[in-house]
């Protein structure tokens, strides 16, 4: 009990002395690490440029406004491509992620020693490598264009979807699975009747959530040539056409906000 006697009176403390000291020490170490990291970053920074950022920003702002609204006409097709990259990429990812998730979940994997580690490695590898890096690799292999973008989005999303899905599978109610098993159902039937209905809402939610993220991700794939509105963005930045850039940014902002709204609506409808 964190109560200590002092001059015959009981004094209540929130924590015991040792624990309190440990917490203070933790804070001290944390702050030190942060300051040290910041110091190292600062050493690598040319502060002149950083201090100059205000004028730079003002300059950039004045070039960006007013936006060149007429440029919107050339953005419809790239926006459509961006949407397609996100949607089809997500669809591909889901198709691959479902079996991976079942292999990775402790309660459904057929082999804990062999298949589960492989599935977990697929998940980690896919998650660790950003879609832009996937796109960089794929553009070199299949050539520039939306196709590389779709595959890149797909690869990156497998890990995300599979990870969240296998966590959902591990959390199902085992009693329902037991009940279906007790009827004499075969393995695939247990899967379809006992497990799938339980994870269906999570599955739909995860898919829509990832689709929403992918819309955002696919706006930049064009920087490395993998299709979508990023191509226009890259070109405009290169030619320093900042009034076009601002139009593109507004277009992206609106697309993302709308997609987020759609995804939130769908998730609400499911639950």
């Amino acid at each position: 009990m964190p109560v200590r006697e002092e001059a015959g009176l009981k004094v209540w403390q929130r924590r015991e002395r040792g624990r309190q000291l440990a917490i203070w020490a933790g804070w001290l170490i944390g702050v030190t690490i942060f300051l040290y990291c910041f110091q190292l970053i600062s050493d690598k920074t040319i502060w002149f440029f950083v201090l100059d950022a205000g004028t730079q920003a003002g300059d950039l702002g004045s070039r960006m406004f007013p936006p060149q609204w007429s440029y919107v006409d050339q953005l419809w097709v790239p926006l459509w491509d961006t949407l397609n990259i996100a949607t089809i990429g997500t669809a591909i990812a889901i198709v691959i992620a479902v079996p991976v998730a079942f292999l990775a979940a402790r309660n459904t994997t057929p082999s804990v020693l062999f298949l589960r580690p492989i599935a977990l490695f697929i998940i980690v590898a896919s998650r660790s490598i950003n879609s832009l890096i996937w796109a960089l690799l794929l553009v070199a292999i299949v050539g520039p264009g939306e196709f590389a973008g779709i595959i890149a989005i797909g690869f990156r999303s497998i890990g995300f979807v599979a990870k969240l899905l296998y966590e959902a599978i591990e959390e199902i109610d085992p009693a329902q699975v037991e009940a279906v098993t007790a009827t004499g159902a075969a393995k695939p039937q247990v899967l379809a009747y006992g497990i799938f209905p339980q994870i269906a809402p999570a599955f739909a939610g995860i898919s829509v959530f990832r689709w929403d993220i992918n819309i955002r991700e696919s706006t930049i794939l064009g920087l490395v040539g993998a299709g979508g509105i990023g191509i226009q963005l890259n070109a405009s930045v290169m030619e320093l056409a900042w009034s076009k850039v601002s139009v593109i940014l507004i277009a992206i902002l609106l697309t993302v906000v709308v997609s987020e709204w759609v995804s939130a609506r769908i998730r609400h409808a499911i639950i």
């Binding site: 009693a175 009940a179 009827t183 009747y193």
Partner: peptide
């Protein structure tokens, strides 16, 4: 499985597939 289908089972907390 053939044997199991000849044994009906009723559970505590029902164990229905809720969805």
């Amino acid at each position: 499985r053939r044997m199991r289908r000849q044994m009906g089972m009723i559970f505590q907390e029902y164990a229905l597939v809720e969805r």
